[in-house]
């Protein structure tokens, strides 16, 4: 969440990339005498973002790595003869070989199959909870800021109270009481339930400057209802911030999932996740290092690539960034 403070400046986005549109030729419209109609050949917002994003090699690299990882999680199991829940009792803690490409665990499970499964679970938990967190925090954060006065005071007080709850412990307790197969769902719910609070605070701060803008005032003066203003004007104008936060939120959700699972409080056998694999591997670092090494490598690749994408997105969407290329 520490990287979210830097997003404050992204608010400038509302004024956006207007100046960068490219009217190719100015045609005087005979209808309007003071008129200034233009025939516009415009670089669309999306094209612009893509172009800016593509200018950053590191971001493109991150995107490629993430795509490979996702494909790996989706289809990796097809090329492997072993299943994650079918241990090979003939090869316990075996080193990587032609039979078991990445070795086996102490219990004889194939590491390759385990990693494909674990990566999939971690990604699923990360993406679902991060998206949910953003939706909840966007609606509540903007609402708290928009209504001002008593609503804002009470809302902020509740948020502050919720922040003091030892969320890690509570999530652990929720997941512990669940069964093995539905564990990941409860974990997602747990991470979401306590993850939105901090983001809601940040979004409320961003909305505070947005709510003073003229087009919000204009909507109020036209008599547009409060809820409509929030959904039509406030949330879309925070869009870029929300997108960046969702992407970066995946990293923190995956990290949280891994941490919980590592402590044995998250996803439990027979299901597996990157964190569970790491926990299993740490006990045999010296005798069977591949059990720890391969999942950690995948975890690092995952978080690193998402972080690179997040940075690239921020630069692409930020109107003040320096990614405009060089003058002739």
């Amino acid at each position: 969440m520490s990287d979210m403070a830097t997003e404050e400046k992204d608010l400038g986005l509302n004024q956006d990339v207007a100046t960068e549109g490219t009217p190719a030729a100015v045609v005087v419209n005979p209808v309007s005498q003071g008129g200034d109609a233009q025939d516009l050949k415009r670089t669309g917002r999306m094209t612009l973002y893509v172009r800016r994003f593509m200018r950053r090699p590191s971001a493109v690299f991150g995107l490629v790595v993430l795509c490979i990882l996702i494909l790996f999680a989706l289809f990796g199991a097809m090329v492997c003869p072993w299943k994650y829940d079918e241990p090979d009792f003939t090869a316990l803690a075996a080193a990587p070989s032609a039979d078991h490409w990445l070795g086996t665990t102490i219990g004889g499970s194939d590491m390759y199959a385990m990693i494909v499964r674990g990566l999939g679970r971690s990604l699923l938990v990360g993406i679902i909870s991060s998206t949910l967190i953003m939706i909840i925090s966007a609606v509540l954060g903007t609402a708290i800021a928009f209504f001002e006065g008593v609503v804002e005071k009470v809302g902020m007080w509740i948020l502050d109270m919720l922040l003091t709850i030892p969320s890690f412990l509570l999530v652990a307790m929720i997941v512990r009481s669940s069964s093995g197969t539905s564990g990941w769902l409860w974990l997602t719910i747990g991470i979401t339930a306590f993850g939105w609070i901090g983001y809601a605070r940040v979004i409320r701060t961003l909305t505070m400057s947005l709510r003073e803008l003229d087009y919000i005032r204009a909507a109020k003066f036209m008599g547009v209802g409060s809820f409509r203003i929030i959904l039509r004007h406030l949330v879309p104008n925070l869009g870029s911030v929300l997108i960046i936060n969702t992407v970066l939120g995946v990293v923190s959700a995956v990290n949280q999932e891994t941490a919980l699972s590592f402590l044995g409080l998250g996803i439990k056998a027979p299901d597996t996740s990157l964190g569970t694999l790491l926990m299993n591997g740490q006990s045999s670092v010296l005798t069977a290092p591949w059990i720890l090494l391969f999942p950690s490598a995948v975890l690092i690749l995952l978080t690193f690539s998402v972080q690179l994408i997040g940075d690239g997105l921020r630069d692409a969407i930020d109107p003040y960034s320096r990614s405009a290329g060089k003058a002739e």
Binding site: Q15, D16, Y215, R217, A218, M222, H233, N237
Partner: peptide, 20 residues
């Protein structure tokens, strides 16, 4: 009242929602 009285702001850059 809203239909009888309307308001025009100083800066047309900020008084129109850029996303609509």
């Amino acid at each position: 009242l809203h239909s009888n009285v309307q308001y025009i702001f100083q800066d047309p850059m900020s008084s129109l929602d850029p996303r609509l």
